[in-house]
Design a protein around this nucleic acid. Structure first.
Lengths: 216, 216, 216, 216
DNA sequence: AATGAATGAGCATTCATTCAT
DNA sequence: AATGAATGAATGCTCATTCAT
């Protein structure tokens, strides 16, 4: 591993109130945990990234594990709010809404989002930190499946989609390709992962063909 | 983390030919890497699991990294062969083949496969061990996308599927839900992940509806 | 080799400024390297001699090799300065200066100098630590040859010595016996090595006879 | 340290009588000890150089230490014999004999002699292996000083040299430059050490001038 | 005699954590 | 609050030595 060149904070040697210091540390810790995983992360490196001394971390967090859990808890800032807002404020065809939400999803995946960083952490450490799995289940999977589910149900109710597609399992299948692209980008990097644009177009085409009633 | 109580090998102090010892070590290492990740894995624990002395590992592998790479390389024993065989030996409708391959995929995901262990390792460590990303890209993603692509092309050629679906991006979207279920099971465990049966049924229904020409 | 009972520092558990701790460590390391050579030296033993924990060494030096190089660099405090001063401040016959410098050299060899410890280290490890050879060449050999060379040239210029003796090779031959006595003492100890007093007298007699013009 | 490319023996897998195997091992061990010092030498490397398996060394030598001592004992093959022969068979002027012996000495130093290898070992390890110091004192220093001493005494007896030069200390000073050149070559390599030819010429010139009676 | 698989003690090095300043 | 010197328990790795084959 290269001697990480991540930009450290300006060397603020000034005394800061906890409300300002904690986010600095959490941000630095997120970067470090994401870059090295839990076991590979070094407290000294977290301190360097935050621009503070090693010892100061222990004023705010009693241990590496506690810091890690705080990082995860802090990661709750959701990108789902935009989608949920679109869903509830919607007026127009559900075909159009489906397309709009798909665009939103692929766009989120393509942005250099901190979310992917958290996502990788979750995949890597979920087995050892049960809280991570719970967090993903409740804050990420449930919400995205919920959005897809409500979209499908509303479309069925409006007569735009086939009635079967509101059954269990459909929502997961509908959103899986977006999430999977995110995983592929985690594994392969943005360059080597499948093309986002091609997948988005294919995804939209397939969904529209699959959801609409045969009669059109 | 508790001092793992995984069953160690019988305390064979016997001299074994390398051809028998190496798989023992690779097996033990896979378990340990899967349980702890690369950084968290301990060579002493690998030795304990294999029922040998620490030093012997270094008789076979020059370093922890080399051992890790050998574990991954060794994991190449592919589940794709069955799918590739079905694809090339197929006679009958491509709708039926699609359904059969989907069943094969969901079944593979549901088996307690060592493959998922390997998959988690790849996701977690790909950034630090470049070989892993290449391995996934060439041996796993390319093969599964290739199978899906050939299925789509053949179905189009046979007039069973819409011509558009052979375009880039479709194959990835078609197989993404199966792979994504695998990831969800990695994160959440088999119990908390979405229902495989429901997803499989929804997936099949959606694909058949999406791929067939409008005229039916 | 017995588990060395060299006096460890007082068990100072106090926090010290680096400017005080580093010399402690360097001193302890010199002792240990001198006693065991580079490969044989143990970092734990260096720590014990310095009265600190093993880990602290790595706070100051990134590796055993770096510590070794620092020890050597630190040993530069030269005994050549006295000789160089005499040479430049000299007024009087060069025969007398020659005798004075010889006395200085034999005296330096006979003192229980840390320099000999360093010298043995250099001889023993030069092949493996290239910096050592360069250090000896530039800081020890070049300086002592330089002193002898300037003495010979000045004596020739003053008409006291034969003109030939300023040619290449003479300076090395002139000082070799002093250096060699140092090596013999390294190998054999002070007791078994040739007599310093006898060598000094013989050396002075031979040089004076050899350098002076035949006419006397 | 580079992955040593020293030529290993042909892989003689044949069973050999001890009388043939031992020299192979001793030769290989001398190379390895000389290259790495006692602590740094590896038995596996000795075996590789000898073209045999590690375990076989222990058929002939009970331990690394025992092997080392055997290497030293075996190194007694003297280069002094030629000088001693010249000295005893001599007829002619002692000035000429002095020059001839000097030539012999400088020539021995310049040859890529195994002796220097042993010499370095002696310097490096003498403190820890008392036998080494004794060996050097008796087999090398005493013999070379003895040769010089007898030469001086014979020259004095023949009236060629000043009577004083048979006193203690002169023999050591007379031969020191040759030995010192050997040490310099050990430390600095043949390329960086002082010029052998220049030293030899200066050495001869100085000695002849110093030893002859004033009257010539 | 010969091999090289196997052991285990030992060593360099790392790093979470503590605590004097 | 803040620092970074100091600790010590791991942990990766080496290597002399043993011994089954």
């Amino acid at each position: 591993m290269p001697p990480d060149t991540a930009t450290p904070h300006e060397p603020s040697r000034r005394r800061l109130p906890p409300a300002e210091r904690m986010p600095q540390i959490l941000e630095a810790a997120l970067e470090e945990f994401a870059a090295r995983g839990f076991a590979g992360a070094r407290m000294a490196e977290v301190a360097r990234r935050a621009g503070i001394a090693k010892g100061l971390i222990y004023h705010y967090f009693p241990s590496k594990t506690a810091l890690f859990e705080a990082v995860v808890r802090d990661g709750t800032r959701s990108d789902f709010e935009a989608a949920e807002r679109q869903l509830s404020q919607h007026s127009g065809s559900y075909r159009a809404l489906l397309a709009a939400l798909l665009d939103l999803g692929y766009q989120a995946v393509c942005e250099d989002a901190r979310d992917r960083v958290l996502f990788r952490l979750i995949i890597a450490e979920a087995e050892h930190v049960p809280e991570l799995a719970g967090f993903y289940r409740d804050e990420m999977l449930a919400r995205s499946v919920g959005i897809a589910q409500r979209l499908l149900e509303a479309g069925v109710a409006a007569g735009e989609f086939r009635p079967e597609v509101a059954a269990p399992g459909y929502a997961e299948v509908v959103l899986a390709p977006v999430v999977m692209l995110s995983v592929w980008r985690i594994i392969l990097g943005n360059a080597d992962a499948p093309e986002a644009a091609a997948m988005r177009a294919a995804h939209r085409d397939l969904l529209l063909a699959a959801l609409l009633p045969p009669a059109g």
